[in-house]
């Protein structure tokens, strides 16, 4: 399932790229088609995996990576439909490929389906996991758009690139969608931790890092609304915040394993 998704994603990337650089409409439609196909295959694959396992596919880093990718593609497509703009598609799909590559890099042993561990038998597993996935996905789309803004040739003149203002607007919309979901994921994680361990905050590396990420995005909103930051500078903050988020997803678990920090998190 992931291999097929991966192929569709690369096809979408190439077609979106042709649409941006060559301006051909068929390539743009092809890019959207590739993204839709990737999302449909992934949706089906996740549903089958969940049904086979008998629980939500959110129990380890691999499964969470798939849900992250699923949410990213969903937000990407929703934004594309609502804005009627495809030229930025390649950047969002680029981030999706990064997430998919990370998921593919897991060894087969980690990709196998396992029964639900006692610590994960909770109603809070889907709530916490799905809210995090949606938040991550929206922030991933925002990062793709921020990346586009940083390399944008500027001005409104280039006919091939979407206007700067529309890229910034879409970036703001993606992050505006993601931030409340990130907040909800931290809140639901705190409630779950209280139910499971008797404390809502325990300075677990993953918890602390989620706070780092949340503060990073809060800084973005503050700098934009109050300090009036715009343009490449603000886009740089979004890219930096996503680097923090991605490090939380990939780097923190690696650190937990590598330098043997203690963490209760499976993803």
């Amino acid at each position: 399932m992931l291999t097929a998704t991966y192929i569709f994603l690369w096809a979408a990337l190439v077609l979106y790229g042709l649409h941006l650089l060559g301006g051909s409409d068929w390539a743009g439609w092809g890019g959207t088609g590739g993204a839709v196909a990737a999302w449909v295959v992934l949706t089906g694959g996740l549903a089958i995996r969940g049904l086979r396992a008998g629980h939500w596919p959110l129990t380890n880093r691999y499964e969470f990576g798939l849900c992250f990718l699923w949410a990213l593609l969903a937000v990407h497509l929703l934004l594309e439909i609502s804005a009627g703009e495809r030229r930025w598609g390649g950047f969002g799909i680029g981030v999706a490929i990064l997430v998919a590559t990370t998921a593919l890099a897991h060894p087969p042993g980690e990709r196998a389906i396992y029964p639900l561990a006692p610590a994960l038998r909770s109603v809070w597993l889907p709530i916490h996991g799905l809210t995090a996935a949606v938040g991550y996905g929206a922030c991933g789309v925002g990062a793709g758009l921020a990346l586009m803004r940083t390399v944008h040739p500027g001005g409104e003149r280039g006919p091939k690139w979407p206007p700067v203002v529309s890229v910034e607007r879409a970036m703001g919309r993606a992050l505006g969608l993601g931030f409340p979901w990130l907040t909800l994921s931290i809140l639901s994680g705190g409630i779950w931790a209280e139910v499971a361990w008797g404390r809502y905050w325990g300075w677990d590396p993953k918890e602390s890092w989620s706070l780092v990420v949340w503060l990073g995005y809060l800084l973005f909103f503050h700098l934009r609304a109050v300090r009036g930051w715009r343009g490449r500078r603000l886009a740089g903050v979004v890219v930096a915040a996503f680097v923090l988020l991605y490090f939380g997803f990939v780097g923190i678990p690696a650190l937990v394993r590598g330098i043997r920090l203690e963490s209760l998190h499976g993803f």
Partner: peptide, 27 residues
């Protein structure tokens, strides 16, 4: 606002440090 943003940034740095260093479990 500048002070609030700076404090947020410092909290962010502390949280970052707390994530990267092993922490004595509160219990």
């Amino acid at each position: 606002m500048g002070v609030a943003s700076s404090l947020l940034f410092l909290l962010l740095l502390f949280s970052l440090l707390g994530s990267l260093l092993p922490q004595l479990p509160p219990s």
